[in-house]
Design a protein around this nucleic acid. Structure first.
Length: 877
RNA sequence: GGGUGUUUAGCUCAGUUGGUUUAGAGCGCUACCUUGACAGGGUAGAAGUCAGCGGUUCGAAUCCGUUAACACCCACCA
C-alpha cells in the first residue's frame, strides 16, 4: 500500500463525516444505557461560524465523543436561535437596501421576508459545525421558532401569568432608539465616555436672580418639571417654595426639596426630568410632578421641543447649547466622564423611557437556582470563580422585562377586548382567549374580531431559557419518555458572557418547570483573543476566517490548536501557529503509521530489546491514560491533550518506534502485532480530539466493518502500571541522554563504538543492555572500575557513576571544570538540605515522610560529593 | 463607586490541601545532524530574584497584609 508522506486532512474529512452520518453513529434514542447529554448553545440562525463557536463546539465534541466511546448513550442536540433583535435588524437592513421600509410593511408581510431570509441563510452555521467534525444528532435539530418550541414558550408564558409571576407594568425601561424596542438590563452595555457637564442658569419666576444647575443632557430641558435641592443645603434656603423658569422654554416649574440630591455634585441644584431618567422618575412620583416625554421613539425630539422638533437628540444637544449660550443662559462647560448605556446589538445609546411592558417577577423564582449553585452544588460552575459573579447577580436580581417591540419572535399571547389598558386576557390560543374574554366581560356576543393580540414579541432569551427542556418537548408534555430519559443533561459548554442572559435563567426555569437543574456542570470557556490580547471583532478585522483555517490546516489541526491553548475560564490568545503545531502533530502520527505499515514481517524471533521497549510502552500508556482520566474529571481538556501529545510524540515515536525499528526494515510478526495494537489504542484516546485523522488511520490498521468504526469503538480501560519499571526506564533514558551529551562534548561520532564502565552500580542496567545496543549507543558494558592509569571521562546519572575510556583525548582542564561545577552544585544542595535537617523544629514538626525524604536527599548528596571528590583527586594526580 | 480574577523562561501557560522542586511544560530560540516514517524531522543546549514590599511559619511561587499594572463583571449620582 502506498501512503503519501504528507497527511492531507482536507482530502479525507468529508468522506469520514459522510460515513459517520450514513451509519447513524450520532443518532441517539433512549435505551437501556446511561445517557450523556449536551444541548448546544444555539447559535444565531443567521450567524456564521467564528472562533468562539469553534472553541466551545470543539470542546463539546470532545466531551461527547469520549462519552460515546465510554459506552454512554451520547446525545448532542443541535439547533439555532431566532435571535429576535439581531435577525430583525439584519432583515430590516436588507429590505432598506431594496428600498423597502419596515414601516411600509404589514406584520405578515414582514414576517414573510424574515422567514425567507431565515430559509436562505439559516442553518449555514450548522453545516459549518459539520466541517469541524461535530457529532451532533442532526435528526434532533431544533429552532426556537419551530412550532413545538413556540408552543412551549406560549405555555410557559400563560402558566407564569396565571401564577401571577408575569405582569404588565408602566415602567421606565431601556429603549433602543435604533431598533425601536426595549431591552433587558442585561442587553445594555455600560461604557465610560468622555462627555461634558453643562452649567445652565434658570431665572427665578417671581424674584430677581437665577439659580444654576449642572446637567449632561441639556436637550432634555424641554421635559423639565422641577428643580430639586437638598432640604438642608443652607446655600439655597432662600429658594424654598420658590419657582424657576426653564430657559428658552419659558415654563414655570417648582423648586422642590429632596435629600436624594448630593449637594457636593455640580452646583447642588438638580433639574428634574421624570420622563427621561429613572431617578428623576422616582423624584417625580414622590412630588407628584408632571411627566413630559420629549422624544420620538427613534430618538428625535418631539412637539415639546419647539424649534428643535424633529432634530436628533445629539444634534439638538449641540444646537440647543448654542442657543443657550447666545441667550446668556450657559455658564460654563466642564469635562465629565459619564457612564453611557449602549445597546448590545445595535450599539445605539440607550434612552430611559417610560412605557407599558411585560415583566417576569424573578425574586422567588431565583431562590432554588441560588441554592443549586451555592449550597447543594447540584449545578457546578467551572471554573469556580464564577460562583461569586453568579451569587451577586442572583441576589440582586430584578424583574425581567420580557416584551420587545419587534415582530420577529413569539408574539405575546395577550388579547385585548376593549380600549382600557387592562382589558385583556392571556391564553394560549385565540379560542381560549375568546371564551375567557366573554366570561370576563359577561358579554357572550364578543367575537374573534373584537380581540386584538398584543403587538409585542417576547425576548429571545424567553425561549432560550427553556432550551434544555423544550428540545425534548418537556414543556408541553412534561412526562414524555425523551425528557425523562435525557433531562437533566450532563454538561453545558458556553461563554461567560451569557452567564446571566442564559445559563442562570435556564437553571431558574429548570427548577420551576421540572424541579431539577438543566445540567450538572457548566464549563465556561474563555474569550478568544488575538495574540496581542485584543478581543476578536469584525471592526478590528483580527478574527481569522474559521472555515479558512480548517481549509488551510485541517479540522483536526485547528481543534488541536484551539485545545492546546485553553484552560476553562481563561481567555485564550489565539495564534495561527498553534494550528500549525496541530498540523505537525497530525503529520507525526500519520508518519508513525507509515513506518509501522512499511515493516516487512520476517521469521526473526522477538528481539529482547523490542520486548523490553514494548513492555515499557504498555506501562507508559497506562500511566498516561490515568493522567488523562484525571484531567478530564477536572475538565482540564488542554492538559489531557498535552499528556497525549507527549505520549505519542515522545514515548511512542521517539522511544518505542526507535527501539524497535531495524536497519533492514523487517520485524517479527509478534512485535508488529503488538505495535499495531498499541497504535490503535493511541488512536482511540486521540479520537475525541482528532476525529478525522484517527478514523482514517483506524481503517488503515485493519479491515473494519461499520460496527467496528473508531467513532463507536471502546475507550481503553484504565489498567494498573508498574511504577518501578517506568522509573528504571527513566534512568535508562537519562543514561542515553548523558551518553549523547558526552559524545557531543568529546566530539565522538554518533556511530563510534564506546565502552561504558559502570563504577558504582545500583540499577539493573544489564536488563537493558540489548535495548541500549539496539539504540546504537554503547558497544559494551563493563561492570568494573577502570584501572588507575586509564584515561577517560566520567559522568553521573542518579547515584551511578560512569566512565568512558578516551585514549589521549582527555581535556584535563575541561574535565576538572565540569567536575568542580557539579561539586559546587552538589555542595550547595547538601547545604540547604542540611540546614533543614539541623533545624530541630523542622525535624520535630514536619511529617515523618518529609524528613525521611530530606535525609535521603542528604545521603545521596554526600555520596555524590565523595564520588566527585575522588574523581577530581584522580584527575589531579 | 463595589466586586472578581490575573501577574512564574522570549511567547502561551502548569505548579492540585505550604515540604520528593536552589521552579516545570509546549512553542520559539541557539548549535549540530539529512540516501528510507516524518526538515511539518532528530540530538543537545541556553534561558526565570515565581510583579514590588512587609508578615506568618522550622519551611512560602503556594497562606496573610499592602502597593502597582492589566483584565473582566456589577452599579440610576445629575
Amino acid at each position: 500500500m502506498d501512503i503519501p508522506p504528507k497527511f492531507k486532512s482536507q482530502e479525507i474529512e468529508d468522506k469520514w463525516y459522510q460515513y459517520w452520518i450514513d451509519n447513524q453513529y450520532f443518532r441517539s434514542i433512549p435505551d437501556a444505557r446511561e445517557p450523556y447529554t449536551i444541548v448546544i448553545p444555539p447559535p444565531n440562525v443567521t450567524g456564521v461560524l467564528h472562533m468562539g463557536h469553534m472553541l466551545n463546539n470543539s470542546l463539546q465534541d470532545i466531551l461527547i465523543r469520549r462519552a460515546r466511546m465510554k459506552g454512554f448513550n451520547a446525545c448532542w442536540v443541535p439547533g439555532t436561535d431566532h435571535a429576535s433583535i439581531a435577525t430583525e435588524a439584519k432583515v430590516v437592513a436588507k429590505l432598506k437596501k431594496e428600498g423597502i421600509e419596515k414601516s411600509d410593511l404589514s406584520r405578515d408581510e414582514f414576517m414573510k421576508h424574515a422567514w425567507e431570509w431565515t430559509h436562505e441563510y439559516g442553518g449555514v452555521i450548522l453545516d459549518q459545525l459539520k466541517k469541524l467534525g461535530c457529532s451532533c444528532d442532526w435528526d434532533r435539530t431544533q429552532f426556537t421558532l419551530n412550532d413545538n418550541l413556540s408552543a412551549s414558550v406560549i405555555k410557559v408564558f400563560v402558566d407564569l401569568y396565571q401564577k401571577g409571576l408575569i405582569y404588565k407594568g408602566y415602567r421606565m425601561v431601556n429603549w433602543d432608539p435604533e431598533a425601536q424596542t426595549t431591552l433587558s438590563d442585561e442587553e445594555v452595555i455600560h461604557e465610560e465616555k468622555q462627555g461634558l457637564l453643562y452649567y445652565i442658569n434658570y431665572p427665578l419666576a417671581e424674584d430677581e436672580g437665577s439659580l444654576t444647575i449642572a446637567t449632561t443632557r441639556p436637550e432634555t430641558i424641554f421635559g423639565d418639571t422641577a428643580i430639586c435641592i437638598h432640604p438642608k443645603d443652607e446655600r439655597f434656603t432662600m429658594l424654598h417654595g420658590k419657582k424657576a423658569i426653564v430657559p428658552i422654554v419659558g415654563r414655570e416649574i417648582p423648586i422642590i426639596l429632596d435629600d436624594y440630591v448630593d449637594p457636593a455634585f455640580g452646583t447642588g441644584c438638580l433639574k428634574v426630568t421624570p420622563a427621561h431618567d429613572p431617578n428623576d422618575k422616582a423624584l417625580g412620583e414622590r412630588h407628584q410632578l408632571e411627566v413630559i416625554d420629549v422624544f420620538h421613539p427613534d430618538g428625535r425630539l418631539n412637539e415639546h421641543a419647539g424649534d428643535w422638533e424633529g432634530e436628533d437628540r445629539f444634534v439638538a444637544r449641540k444646537s440647543f447649547i448654542k442657543a443657550l449660550e447666545k441667550e446668556g443662559f450657559l455658564v460654563k462647560k466642564e469635562n465629565h466622564i459619564n457612564n453611557v448605556g449602549t445597546s448590545e446589538r445595535t450599539k445605539a445609546v440607550i434612552e430611559p423611557r417610560l412605557s407599558d411592558q411585560w415583566f417576569l417577577k424573578m425574586e422567588t423564582l431565583a431562590e432554588p437556582a441560588i441554592k443549586a449553585v451555592l449550597e447543594s452544588e447540584e449545578v457546578a460552575l467551572l471554573p469556580k470563580k464564577f460562583k461569586n459573579t453568579y451569587r451577586h447577580w442572583m441576589e440582586n436580581i430584578r424583574d425581567w422585562n420580557i416584551s420587545r417591540q419587534l415582530w420577529w419572535g413569539h408574539q405575546i399571547p395577550a388579547y385585548y377586548y376593549g380600549k382600557g389598558k387592562n382589558d385583556f386576557v392571556v391564553a394560549a390560543t385565540q379560542d381560549k382567549a375568546l371564551s375567557l374574554a366573554q366570561e370576563k366581560t359577561g358579554n357572550p356576543k364578543l367575537t374573534v374580531a373584537d380581540l386584538r393580540q398584543d403587538e409585542d414579541v417576547l425576548d429571545t432569551w424567553f425561549s432560550s431559557w427553556l432550551w434544555p427542556i423544550s428540545v425534548f418537548d418537556g414543556v408541553v408534555h412534561p412526562e414524555n419518555e425523551e425528557v425523562n430519559y435525557y433531562y437533566p443533561t450532563q454538561d453545558l459548554v458556553t461563554g461567560p458572557d451569557i452567564l446571566f442572559f442564559w445559563v442562570a435563567r435556564m437553571i431558574i426555569s429548570g427548577y420551576e418547570l421540572r424541579q431539577k437543574p438543566p445540567f450538572e456542570k457548566v464549563y465556561l470557556t474563555g474569550l478568544v483573543r488575538d495574540k496581542q490580547g485584543r478581543k476578536m471583532s469584525k471592526q478590528l478585522g483580527n478574527s481569522p476566517d474559521a472555515l479558512g483555517l480548517i481549509d488551510t490546516f485541517g479540522a483536526d489541526a485547528v481543534r488541536v490548536g484551539l485545545m492546546l491553548s485553553t484552560a476553562a475560564g481563561n481567555d485564550l490568545l489565539f495564534d495561527e501557529s498553534l494550528c500549525q503545531q496541530g498540523k505537525n502533530f497530525s503529520n507525526k502520527i500519520w508518519n508513525a503509521y507509515r513506518l509501522i505499515q512499511s515493516w516487512e514481517v520476517s521469521d526473526h524471533s522477538l528481539s529482547p530489546a523490542a520486548d523490553v521497549a514494548l513492555e515499557w510502552y504498555e506501562n507508559s500508556f497506562n500511566r498516561a491514560l490515568e493522567q488523562v482520566e484525571d484531567h478530564f474529571s477536572k475538565y482540564r481538556v488542554s492538559d489531557a491533550l498535552m499528556t497525549l501529545y507527549k505520549l505519542v510524540w515522545d514515548d511512542f515515536c521517539s522511544w518505542l518506534l526507535e527501539a524497535i525499528k531495524t536497519p533492514d526494515n523487517s520485524i517479527d510478526i509478534l512485535t508488529k502485532t503488538r505495535v499495531i495494537a498499541l497504535f490503535e489504542n493511541n488512536l482511540r484516546v486521540l479520537h475525541p480530539f482528532m476525529p478525522f485523522l484517527t478514523e482514517e488511520l483506524w481503517h488503515f490498521c485493519g479491515t473494519r466493518t461499520p460496527n467496528e468504526a473508531l467513532v463507536i469503538s471502546q475507550w481503553p480501560t484504565p489498567a494498573p502500571f508498574d511504577k518501578k519499571l517506568l522509573d528504571d526506564f527513566d534512568q535508562i533514558q537519562q543514561l542515553i541522554g548523558a551518553v549523547r551529551k558526552f559524545r557531543k562534548e568529546k566530539n565522538i561520532g554518533f556511530k563510534a563504538a564506546i565502552q561504558l564502565h559502570v563504577i558504582n552500580d545500583k540499577t539493573p542496567w544489564n536488563q537493558y543492555e540489548s535495548l541500549l545496543k539496539q539504540l546504537g549507543f554503547i558497544e559494551n558494558f563493563l561492570y568494573e572500575s577502570p584501572s588507575d592509569s586509564q584515561m577517560g571521562g566520567t559522568f553521573r546519572v542518579g547515584g551511578a557513576e560512569f566512565f568512558i575510556p578516551l585514549e589521549g583525548r582527555i581535556d584535563v582542564d575541561a574535565e576538572r571544570q565540569k567536575l568542580e561545577e557539579e561539586l559546587q552544585y552538589a555542595q550547595g544542595f547538601l547545604q540547604s538540605v542540611e540546614k533543614k535537617l539541623s533545624n530541630e523544629r523542622f525535624v520535630n514538626n514536619a511529617p515523618k515522610q518529609v524528613v525521611a525524604i530530606e535525609k535521603k536527599k542528604a545521603a545521596d548528596a554526600v555520596l555524590k560529593i565523595r564520588v566527585l571528590k575522588e574523581s577530581l583527586a584522580k584527575l589531579m594526580q
